[in-house]
Design a protein around this nucleic acid. Structure first.
Lengths: 187, 187
DNA sequence: TTTCTCATGTAACGCGTTACATGATTAC
DNA sequence: GTAATCATGTAACGCGTTACATGAGAAA
């Protein structure tokens, strides 16, 4: 359950309510979760029973009380251990590639339209990723190095989508050439 | 349930048993599933009740009978429609990035070790991806264009991991510079 | 007046994984 | 003799999603 550590991480950065965590996850272009309540509140309950976070309640009138979660010493230790854990291979889920694999039954034009649609989808995502960097969260950086790490994490996402765009452009051009050659030999 | 279409795709390519499908998925470096029985056999039952595949049984003695699934006309139609479906944004799950985000509490050396471990993991994966291209499946290509598409799909994975390696190398170098600068100012 | 934000939570379900179960043949 | 391959399937569970439920205040 990796989201548990992701949440713990954000709590190591500043105390928050479940609602705050939800917003961070939902607004993030890079976190692979939707930010749904069910998962987050359940994870927070777990973190609390693990004693990795403590909970304090701030009463409000005319609104539900805010349950503020704060990371504990134990939680900091657990997070530190997790961070040093053997890295996993990144894995991407690109449904489009599986569509493309069986696209040979389509007309050349149809394939090109598909690729264009994919180009637009990826391009749009890239745009939002870049915009999010400008919006800059109002969260202070704890150190020079941490700021650098966060920037590089952001750039990682951008680089991936840029690579994808290059790949799409290349395949479109080459398919155009292939199609031209096919027509030539047919004449 | 995208795996349903993935399986349907492979069945469009040639009739197969569940076991064959399992092997393809398990051996693939790019398909994001493990190739576990439960999922595959269940999906095949669904495909069959959808009438997208037909089933014939080849009896064997001293071994379980082979249930051979063949795509139907309806299945071909369904696959064709799915292929033309609006492409989704690719999304990757990079647990390592979430580890790195909270790595600022570590010593410079420890971070570098982490990054080196990540480099090795990604490098190894890339190696296997390339090897798999040589191993080349004994499956005949149906057309020039399909062969090209499959090659490009393969290159897509390679490009992603290469981008990742570049990113790791860059961050390692820059962190080294940062650390050097920090030591310099401390003296 | 309707929609959005704040803030908590629950119900139902589907996708995906690990592990279990069987049993013959083939390879090392 | 042990392990892998062929070939089918089931049980249990966990992660993740959509949707539901409540209710106040603020903004459009």
């Amino acid at each position: 359950m990796s989201i548990k550590y992701v949440i713990l991480g954000y709590l190591s950065w500043q105390p928050m309510t479940g609602y705050d965590v939800k917003k961070i996850i939902a607004d993030s272009e890079t976190l692979p979760w939707t930010g749904n309540n069910n998962q987050i509140y359940r994870a927070l309950v777990q973190l609390h029973t693990d004693a990795w976070v403590s909970k304090s309640i701030e009463e409000q009138d005319g609104a539900p009380n805010r349950h503020i979660y704060t990371i504990t010493e134990e939680g900091i230790r657990a997070l530190g251990e997790w961070v040093k854990t053997e890295p996993e291979v990144p894995q991407s889920k690109k449904t489009f590639l599986h569509q493309l694999r069986w696209a040979d039954s389509l007309e050349a034009e149809e394939i090109d339209e598909l690729l264009e649609a994919y180009l637009n989808t990826v391009g749009e995502k890239l745009f939002f990723l870049r915009v999010q960097a400008d919006r800059k969260p109002n969260m202070p950086d704890r150190s020079m190095r941490e700021k650098y790490l966060w920037e590089m994490i952001h750039k990682n996402g951008i680089a991936q989508y840029e690579t994808e765009l290059d790949w799409i452009r290349r395949i479109r051009e080459e398919l155009k050439e292939l199609e031209a050659a096919r027509r030539w030999t047919k004449l």
